Amino acid sequence: MLRTRTAAAAVTTAAFAGLLALPAPAQAAGSVHLYKIYYDSPGTDSRTNASLNGEYVIVRNTTTAAVNLRGWTLTDASNHKYTFGNFTLGKGKTVTIRTGKGTNTAANLYQQRAAYVWNNDRDTATLKRSNGTRVDTCSYNSTRVDSVTC
């Protein structure tokens, strides 16, 4: 009788352990990632607000759920940092982060800067979660075009 209970207990323990070892539910399909960088605004670099807002980064959410980007950061290689406020990026949506000044909307966020961020020849954009985990990077090294698709 003792052997039967021990064997039954072992089977029950193994079955329970198997339940604990099941994979976690899948993450939402897709990702939040850097989509495109417009690093050389059109025309002369005059530092006007229109020119500053002509350089921007597009972030895209290809997951199946909205993602709150509060505390996430976007930086360049020189560590110019933009920190997202309480902003939720809808599923399948993009948001454009412009360098200059403006009023934030669901489609456009503004860094409120008076100087350019993205170098016209080469740079690296890094997107990180609020806990500092790197989500994506995108680099370019060209003066022949004004943008890069990541």
Rank of each mutant, 00 (worst) to 15 (best):
M1R: 10
M1S: 13
L2G: 14
L2Q: 11
L2W: 11
R3G: 05
T4H: 12
T4V: 15
R5E: 01
R5S: 05
R5V: 13
T6F: 10
T6E: 04
A8T: 07
A9N: 12
V11I: 15
T13R: 05
T13A: 15
A15D: 01
F16Y: 13
A17D: 00
A17T: 13
A17W: 07
G18K: 11
L22F: 08
L22A: 10
P23M: 06
P23I: 04
A26F: 06
Q27V: 08
A28S: 15
A29E: 12
G30H: 11
S31L: 04
V32K: 06
V32T: 13
H33K: 14
K36P: 00
K36D: 02
I37G: 05
I37D: 05
Y38V: 15
Y39S: 00
Y39E: 02
D40H: 08
D40M: 02
S41H: 09
P42H: 07
T44G: 00
T44M: 05
S46T: 14
S46G: 06
T48I: 03
T48A: 06
T48M: 04
A50C: 05
G54N: 07
E55N: 12
Y56G: 04
Y56M: 04
Y56K: 06
N61H: 07
T62R: 04
T63H: 01
T64V: 05
A65H: 02
V67G: 01
V67S: 00
N68A: 09
R70K: 15
R70G: 10
G71V: 07
G71A: 11
G71F: 07
W72Q: 00
T73E: 07
D76E: 03
S78H: 09
N79L: 13
H80C: 01
H80W: 08
T83R: 12
T83Q: 13
F84K: 04
G85R: 12
N86V: 02
N86M: 02
N86G: 05
F87S: 05
L89M: 01
L89V: 07
G90L: 03
G90W: 03
K91N: 07
K91V: 03
K91F: 06
K93C: 00
K93M: 08
K93W: 06
K93V: 00
T94D: 11
V95I: 14
T96F: 05
T96D: 09
T99G: 06
G102V: 10
G102E: 11
T105S: 15
T105R: 05
N108K: 11
L109I: 12
Q111D: 04
Q111E: 08
Q112D: 09
R113A: 12
A114G: 15
A115L: 08
A115T: 13
V117C: 01
W118Q: 06
N120C: 01
D123A: 10
D123L: 11
A125T: 06
T126Q: 12
K128Y: 10
N131C: 07
G132T: 10
T133H: 03
T133W: 02
R134V: 15
R134Y: 01
V135Q: 13
V135T: 07
V135D: 00
D136V: 01
D136F: 01
D136R: 02
T137V: 08
T137N: 02
C138Y: 09
S139C: 08
S139D: 03
S139E: 05
Y140S: 08
N141W: 11
N141Q: 13
R144E: 12
V145I: 15
V145E: 14
